[in-house]
């Protein structure tokens, strides 16, 4: 093998990846990682939650509440907010996630029912002379 070819091959630069590759990979990764997706879309909610807590703390400080008083007032509020978020997430799951997951099962039952119906309609017993 001539050295020049070897050198020429070794010197070949990397090709630039197409611009579409990165978005494709990231979209596919997001689809594979529902937790990651949740983390992304829930960012505003998490920030709101943090701001609410900070606001509550500032308010209680300004109102001259002691730490115990502020805790007694804010903790139930924070718990309530967390519970509301949990309920909301559960509602989303019940309204969208689970029905979609069960959609294939429902379709299968629907197809089976339709098949049975069609068979019933198309294969009615023939009237025979012997029974008359």
């Amino acid at each position: 093998m001539s050295e020049s070819l070897h050198r020429a091959l070794a010197a070949l630069p990397l090709r630039r990846a197409p611009k579409t590759l990165l978005p494709r990979v990231l979209a596919a990764a997001r689809a594979e990682d529902p937790y990651g997706a949740w983390w992304t879309w829930s960012a505003p909610a998490r920030w709101s939650y943090a701001l609410a807590i900070a606001g509550g703390a500032a308010f209680s400080f300004k109102a001259g509440w002691s730490l115990a008083e502020a805790g007694a007032a804010l903790l139930p509020a924070a718990e309530g907010l967390a519970a509301a978020c949990g309920t909301l997430a559960r509602a989303f799951w019940l309204a969208g996630g689970r029905p979609l997951m069960g959609a294939s099962l429902v379709m299968a039952f629907a197809c089976a029912a339709m098949s049975v119906g069609l068979i019933h309609l198309t294969q009615r017993p023939q009237v025979s002379g012997r029974h008359s």
Partner: peptide, 22 residues
């Protein structure tokens, strides 16, 4: 976060991976 780390990882290696595959 992990997503940003992965995006940086892809940016860093995408030319090499694409060239190898090509």
């Amino acid at each position: 976060n992990a997503t940003e780390g992965f995006e940086r990882f892809v940016r860093e290696h995408q030319d090499m991976v694409y060239t190898t595959a090509l």
